[in-house]
Simulated scan of single mutants.
Amino acid sequence: MSGPLDGVKVVDLTTVVVGPICTRTLADQGAEVIKVEAPGGDILRFLAAGSRTPAMSGKFINFNRNKRSVGLNIKRPEGLAALKAMIAKADVFVSNVRPAALERAGLDFAGLSAINPRLIHCSILAFGRGGRYFNRPAYDPVIQSLSGVAGTFHRAMGEPRFVPMVMTDHTTGLIAAQSIGFALYRREKTGIGEAIEVPMFENMASFVTSEHLGAATFDPPEGPTGDGRLLSPYYRPLPTKDGYITAHPNSNAQAFAFLDAIGRPELKEDPRFCSPIARTHHAAEFFELRCEALKEKTTAEWIEIFTAADVPVAPYNSIDDLLADPHLQDVGFWNFDDHPTEGRIRRTSVANKFSGGMREEVLPAPQLGRHTREVLQEMGYDEEAIAAMLEAGAAFEGT
């Protein structure tokens, strides 16, 4: 069996997280992804502690499985020509290079569609075209700060904070992969490629305001922005006698079962808690009530009680706890492979399943330039031409 994108060829000119997440998603679903790296390689190869060999950080390994690495210096004409030869035979080109640099190299949609009219050209941007921030550089913390993500923490906790993971990169990368899927579907009907621009800032501003625009949805506003439930200081795992737990009743059946479980059945008639809309308007009191009640028993006791009452509940997992989570063990989430240079490694499985088939072979994250010669041969370069490129520094290969 093979994945739903089997036969789709992707040229990947991305680095760090937002682009590699996009292309890993495509690769996991069966696409053939060629990762083109400049001399020195993707900076993510070096940005995380714990690697066993140079240029193979754990983060790089996690974000770049199922890809082949080709080393090209596209500042040299021979290297740029080789890249364009790959793109001419590809279905998709993905880049998070700033648009002005793409245009100078002839790698913008106008330049590439001339050599491949069926090409899906996806450019992941920090900021959308037409705005005053367009063409500025940005990383995840910049977008979290600007898009209101840090502002939600300010409202909830009294000071702005970043989500302690590159959340805007992950989110935008997945949106880019989704957009490519949409474009491939349209191309199947029209036979014509197209350009996609996926801006981080606008996508994350939409992400935040979809949740928190609230009463400012109306013009003029009917009240303040922000969902008071999500911005409550009690919207977090809550302490029990011996740890933390999350119990989150929402419907009347769940809320009333929760109140019975904590020994407060009389509150089912309380006008603050008797309906979903009442609990929304009195979220602070309802959340505080939950916080105080949960301190009375252990996590295991509450899990048993709430599970029996069909109240949504889960223990708190630390990052380390995820490695032994029983449900993840049940579904085969963790896999162990023998990497050709890094030895035994742990990797996640693909969470989403397709009944029509999934990619079976998992390619290990590649060493820098590991597949340069192989891919150039596939492009029709003979050994003499490849040797000349390597000698001139237009291409390079790993050991």
Results as ranks from 00 to 15, higher is better:
Leu184Glu: 14
Thr168Cys: 10
His154Lys: 12
Ile180Leu: 13
Ser147Glu: 01
Pro141His: 00
Val166Arg: 05
Tyr185Gln: 05
Arg186Asn: 09
Leu184Arg: 13
Gly158Leu: 12
Gly173Cys: 10
Phe182Arg: 08
Asp169Glu: 13
Gly148Lys: 00
His170Glu: 10
Ala138Val: 10
Ile175Asp: 05
Glu159Ile: 08
Gly173Ala: 12
Leu174Phe: 07
Ala156Thr: 05
Val142Lys: 00
Gly181Pro: 09
Ala183Cys: 14
Ser145Met: 07
Thr168Val: 11
Pro160Leu: 04
Val163Phe: 07
Met167Trp: 03
Ile143Leu: 10
Pro141Asp: 03
Arg161Ser: 06
Gly173Leu: 04
Ala150Gly: 08
Ala150Cys: 08
Ala177Pro: 04
Tyr185Asp: 00
Val163Gly: 02
Pro160Asp: 09
Thr190Ala: 03
Ala183Glu: 14
Ala138Thr: 04
Ala183Lys: 15
Gly148Arg: 04
Thr152Glu: 08
Gly193Asn: 09
Thr152Trp: 04
Glu188Gln: 15
Pro160Arg: 06
Ser145Leu: 00
Glu194Lys: 00
Ala138Cys: 04
Val163Cys: 01
Phe162Leu: 15
Glu194Ala: 09
Ala138Glu: 10
His154Arg: 15
Thr172Ser: 08
Ser147Gly: 12
Asp140His: 01
Ser179Gln: 14
Thr168Leu: 03
Thr152Ala: 04
Met157Trp: 09
Thr171Val: 12
Met157Pro: 01
Leu146Tyr: 07
Asp169Phe: 04
Ala177Arg: 02
Thr171Met: 12
Ala150Thr: 03
Leu146His: 05
Met167Asp: 04
Ala183Arg: 06
Arg187Asn: 08
Thr190Val: 11
His170Pro: 08
Met167Ile: 15
Ile175Thr: 13
Ala150Val: 02
Phe182Pro: 00
Phe162Asn: 13
Glu194Gln: 15
Glu188Val: 10
Ala150Lys: 01
Ser145Val: 04
Arg186Phe: 04
Thr171Leu: 05
Ile192Ala: 12
Gly158Val: 13
Gly151Asp: 10
Thr168Ile: 02
Glu159Trp: 11
Asp169Cys: 08
Phe153Tyr: 15
Met167His: 07
Ile143Phe: 06
Arg155Lys: 15
Ile143Lys: 04
Gly181His: 05
Asp169Met: 01
Arg186Val: 06
His170Trp: 11
Gln178Glu: 12
Ile143Ser: 09
Ala177Val: 07
Gly193His: 14
Gly181Tyr: 02
Leu174Tyr: 07
Ile175His: 13
Thr190Glu: 06
Thr171Phe: 07
Pro137Arg: 05
Leu184Lys: 13
Pro137Glu: 11
Leu184Met: 14
Ile175Glu: 05
Pro137Leu: 02
Gln144Asp: 03
Arg186His: 10
Val142Ala: 12
Ser147Ile: 02
Ser179Phe: 10
Asp169Thr: 10
Gly158Ile: 03
Ile192Lys: 09
Val166Pro: 12
Pro164Ser: 14
Gly181Thr: 07
Pro160Glu: 05
Glu194Cys: 13
Thr171Cys: 05
Ile143Asn: 05
Leu184Val: 09
Thr171Ile: 11
Thr190Asn: 04
Asp140Tyr: 00
Ile180Lys: 08
Met167Gly: 08
Thr152Phe: 03
Thr190Gly: 06
Val163Ile: 13
Pro164Gln: 13
Arg186Gln: 13
Gln178Val: 01
Gly148Ile: 08
Ala177Glu: 03
Pro137His: 00
Val166Trp: 06
Tyr139Asn: 01
